[in-house]
């Protein structure tokens, strides 16, 4: 991705998080906790598990549809970050060569199961993480983290970072565009130019920090970032949380998919 693409990509995701849908209105604490529980549940499955993972697609699908998040956007991002997991996982079919019969003597290498299991887990975890931020504005995620007990210094750090990545990305984008416009034949893309660019960027950033500090001082800053209490856990939030906790529990500990399959098989045979 070019710098511009990355910038607009993150900007779009950020825009999505300020929508006003039923999912966006849920208490961010509920979303953060359920998402983390979801992730833990998914990766706690055994390495060869495939079928029992499938019901878990319900959670991202619900977030996506109720939250009105475009499918292709999330899908592309998931594909884009997949290389590492695929790279590590693709060795499984080669190395784990035990044969498994899946259907009337049709044999397949066991490694394929663990590979597909990795892919499914990857899709579930990455899409859910993306959907969390697509349905919860970053400041709200931060406030949730603060209320869940993370140090306030760290949280205000996150908030500053969020505030200024957009400003600095824009500034950087202008410099990168200037570089690209004048670096015919790619000669300007080397390390030397890069070092200069980030050097300049760094100095400007230090100056900016100074100005921000001044602005903070002039509005009474004395070392503590003030915070507002803003959430109350509603019945809807509770319902959401309870529903998904029960959901995760059932589908983690009971092979519901297989039971369903057997039941249907029984009906038709």
């Amino acid at each position: 991705m070019t710098f511009d693409e990355k910038y607009y990509n993150i900007g779009f995701l950020d825009q999505l998080s300020y929508k006003n849908t039923i999912v966006h209105r849920l208490d961010p604490r509920a979303k953060v906790i359920i998402t983390l529980l979801f992730l833990f549940t998914v990766i706690s499955f055994p390495k060869y598990e495939i079928v029992a993972l499938l019901p878990f697609f319900l959670y991202p699908v619900l977030l996506m549809t109720l939250g009105e998040i475009p499918f292709m956007f999330i899908f592309k991002k998931v594909v884009f970050v997949s290389p590492f997991a695929v790279f590590i996982g693709i060795f499984n079919p080669l190395l784990d060569s035990g044969q498994v019969s899946i259907f009337h003597g049709f044999m397949i290498s066991a490694g394929w199961f663990s590979f597909f299991s990795i892919l499914i887990k990857f899709t579930l975890t990455v899409s859910t993480a993306l959907l969390l931020i697509a349905t919860t504005s970053f400041p709200n995620v931060c406030h949730a983290l603060r209320q869940l007990g993370l140090p306030s210094l760290f949280v205000s750090q996150l908030l500053f970072l969020y505030r200024y990545i957009f400003v600095l990305m824009e500034e950087t984008m202008r410099i990168v565009r200037a570089r690209n416009m004048r670096s015919y034949e790619k000669r300007g893309h080397g390390i030397r130019v890069f070092v200069r660019i980030i050097g300049i960027l760094f100095l400007r950033t230090v100056e900016r920090a100074e100005r921000i500090y001044f602005a903070m001082l002039s509005r009474g800053f004395q070392g503590d970032m003030p915070t507002l209490k803003r959430f109350h856990f509603s019945r809807g939030d509770l319902g959401f949380a309870v529903f998904f906790i029960v959901f995760l529990f059932i589908f983690r500990f009971y092979p519901a998919t297989e039971i369903l399959g057997r039941f249907v098989q029984g009906v038709f045979s």
């Binding site: 910038y7 970072l161 070392g223």
Partner: peptide, 26 residues
């Protein structure tokens, strides 16, 4: 130093932005 609070945040944003610039490895 109170000054460090905004500096940390903006420096983080600086690294974040710098990471997004690609350069050619010689």
């Amino acid at each position: 130093d109170n000054k460090t609070i905004p500096l940390m945040g903006v420096m983080g944003a600086f690294i974040f932005a710098a990471q997004m610039i690609n350069f050619t490895i010689p």
